[in-house]
């Protein structure tokens, strides 16, 4: 008797849940991100002086790390749908860091992707955090509780032809940058979409304000003398990202 009752109850529950599924409400999906770190389309190879910026400086990359955070999607009418409040530490020398998946993306038709370079001020002032924000990743300042949002270390050939160290360490509350990129109709309805997001180092050093490594080569956010460089980087970051493809 008990068994029969249970069985009926199960069947009932099953029916109800399956009914729900079959109605016309669209269901959330997921987006797989693949980050392509490059210099004008060339993949970043760590070490050699393979690259040349808009100012004609030959340069290399021995380290390229940065935080992306607070992803959201926008519909055609401008409504912002937050999809994720995680922090991603992208490291051009670690392929595993260059792809991540965001689940439970609300269903909808989206025309823009919005995210941020850096760590928002709510999370930028505590060292006792784990995951991507764990201080172990070498992305915190030594004198100021907060994160280095972006690091490019390497070398460049100066105007005399000498190979000289290059080190840019960027990050402060005022340097938290919003990036917004157009999407060609990304429809989410229970499916998995893939977005390849490109980051072009030469874009960062060119648009709209070109950076000449002969003038800026060892810069750190927070140094009084480095304020102009910091503001230049802030204005250049949004243009350094682009959607390469959506699948």
């Amino acid at each position: 008797m008990l068994r029969k009752l249970l069985l009926t109850a199960c069947a009932g529950a099953f029916l109800i849940s399956s009914c729900k599924k079959s109605d016309s409400n669209p269901s959330p999906g997921s987006i797989q991100f693949s980050i392509s770190n490059e210099v004008d389309g060339q993949p970043i190879q760590m070490g050699p002086l393979n690259f040349q910026n808009a100012k004609g400086n030959d340069y290399s990359v021995s380290m390229l790390k940065y935080y992306l955070s607070n992803f959201s999607l926008l519909t055609a009418d401008g409504t912002e749908v937050p999809v994720n409040s995680s922090y991603y530490l992208i490291d051009a020398s670690l392929p595993a860091s260059e792809s991540f998946s965001i689940a439970d993306v609300p269903a909808g038709a989206y025309t823009k992707l919005r995210f941020h370079l850096g760590v928002d001020s709510l999370h930028n002032h505590s060292g006792t955090q784990s995951g991507a924000l764990d201080p172990v990743h070498g992305m915190i300042w030594n004198w100021n509780t907060g994160y280095i949002f972006f690091k490019h270390e390497g070398s460049y050939k100066d105007s005399l032809g000498n190979v000289t160290p290059l080190a840019f360490h960027y990050g402060s509350d005022r340097g938290y940058v919003q990036v917004e990129l157009p999407l060609s109709n990304l429809n989410i309805d229970g499916n998995t979409r893939k977005i390849t997001l490109g980051f072009n180092l030469n874009g960062l050093y060119a648009n709209p304000i070109p950076i000449d490594f002969n003038l800026d080569n060892n810069r750190t956010s927070g140094n009084r003398d480095d304020v102009f460089w910091e503001m230049t980087m802030r204005s250049n970051f949004p243009g350094a990202f682009q959607i390469i493809k959506t699948e």
Binding site: S126, G127, T128, W141, N142, W143, N144, T145
Partner: peptide, 19 residues
Amino acid sequence: FWDGGAADIESQVVGPIQN
């Protein structure tokens, strides 16, 4: 620190270790 750069005692700890 002299400038209040470290937000709390916990966060201060890793400053000198890495500096």
